[in-house]
Design a protein around this nucleic acid. Structure first.
Lengths: 278, 278
DNA sequence: CGGAAAATTGACTTTCTTCAAAGCTTGTGG
DNA sequence: CCACAAGCTTTGAAGAAAGTCAATTTTCCG
């Protein structure tokens, strides 16, 4: 079974009729191969930090490139885990679901970022990955990745580092969810986006938010109304320009400082206030 | 450099004088080796799910066993990453810290659970690990683990699964922090402990909480007063007995249902309420 | 026993959510 | 091209949940 048969679902089709791995025989969205060694994302994707020889090893992996249209999913919770997915362009969100139907967005994914690591644990994905706009991905068959890396200690190490980085990332999300006010959360979210956009060669101070306010709220542990209000509050503080989904950060430095000392601008050097909000 | 020189800090000693890896030449807390193959925790620790042959491979690793007293740390943020630590007995907490001093407990660790995976990403730990009682750990030198596993595809896979499991675990914590009320969070916390205690052969309905209310609060994204109030609320609902740090769950099933339908007992089958709280 | 730390409880405040209404966007079809 | 419906987004007012501050009580340990 190769990556070519992995299910990529399209919006509007009933999810329940799918069984991962048996759909998409025709694979109308397949695109020509794009080797890692010449990919414009190689500095911020899986190959980052690897030697040219190792990247050539990656090139030999039978991974495939595909289009996914807005609303389409790469996988859903419970699907058999076969591939890791690297975003080539566009944007995705990851969601986890509780038995009772509660959902939470656990991340937004820019080009070069890796999706599906949660499937390694049990052999089935624990979350879903949904395209927030028409996108392209590389599907990397995990079995093949393992085979290739078994011969290469460095590559093994790189994969381990990728997983560990995901753990660290989630640590900081927990910190955000557990100890920040609404305003701090939104600021942290925008700053994180800003940094990641910059790394990818986009403007760090101006970008389109592909996701809805509800998605942002779910990610930040807030209601969509609160997200909306917090946006207008940041705009009133002259930290942002917001026009619908388009955001411009007026002062990155100031926004960053909104993370430390909130509300009143005078408490930066307070000796013993620990800065915690709720 | 072997695991024997890894720093384990003791409470009361100044953290700043330590440099990871150069302390503890005398290693007064070293204990005799305890091979995985005969360890009573092998069903719920690193060796879980491995074949006898692979466990023998683990036995050959130069890992060391040590005591850590209450308040001692295995590592602190920024320490050079050398070892993974498996809890042998006792209990630990993990904390992450923000630049401004904000802290958050990211997990509590029971015997058989693994600590330090966040160090793989950058070669330095991103969090701290502190003993909540006098404990014992196995220190597994990561470099040696890599060497051993490079020859063994199965063992490699097992390690990857451990890391992925951590990612999944953190997903569910995010869900908790992002979408649960105080009562649900505390119930989820106790149920998680209950399950993990049971796996380890302890009573699933009765246990000592080694951590303070403040630690629980930090972990759950609540203030310690709220934790205290929520405990008394659960006691009044006859779901728990709480005597100081000793907790007895009166009805596991009922407590579990406190996660779905809260507050008013009548909303279990509501057709379109999505169940979200805050 | 005594003092320090941890936990509980109460009163009050703040923040965020909930509910509701209205304004914008976007896309579709006459 | 315009009208209109559907889906987001914004905004307001009221309510609920958790935080803050403060006073006590309990526990822990030397």
């Amino acid at each position: 079974m190769t990556a070519d048969t992995a299910a990529i679902r399209e919006p509007g089709r009933s999810a329940s009729v799918f069984v991962a791995g048996v759909d998409r025989l025709a694979r109308p969205h397949a695109l020509p191969r794009a080797p890692c060694s010449t990919c414009h994302l190689r500095h911020c994707c899986v190959p980052a930090g690897l030697s040219p020889a190792q990247v050539e090893g990656l090139d030999r992996l039978p991974f495939s490139r595909r289009r996914v249209q807005l609303g389409g999913t790469l996988y859903e919770p419970g699907d058999v885990f076969k591939c890791l997915y690297a975003v080539r362009n566009g944007m995705f969100k990851s969601c986890v679901t509780l038995e009772d139907g509660r959902q939470q967005v656990t991340g937004f994914h820019l080009p070069g970022e890796l999706l599906g690591l949660d499937g390694v644990a049990t052999g089935r994905y624990a979350s879903s990955a949904t395209a927030l706009e028409d996108s392209e991905i590389c599907a990397i068959p995990y079995a093949d990745l393992r085979t290739t890396s078994s011969a290469d200690l460095e590559l093994q190490g790189a994969i381990a580092r990728l997983m560990s980085r995901e753990i660290v990332r989630e640590h900081s999300l927990m910190l955000m969810l557990g100890s920040m006010s609404a305003e701090e959360r939104l600021a942290a979210f925008l700053l994180s986006l800003s940094t990641r956009m910059k790394v990818r060669g986009f403007s760090p101070i101006e970008f389109h938010l592909r996701m809805s306010r509800a998605d942002i709220g779910s990610f930040l542990g807030l209601k969509l109304e609160t997200v909306s209000r917090t946006f207008t509050s940041l705009v009133r503080q002259r930290l942002l320009h917001v026009d619908k989904k388009h955001v411009r950060i007026l002062d990155l430095h100031l926004l960053r400082s909104a993370l430390d000392m909130r509300t009143s601008p005078l408490r930066a050097a307070g000796p013993h206030g620990d800065g915690r909000r709720r």
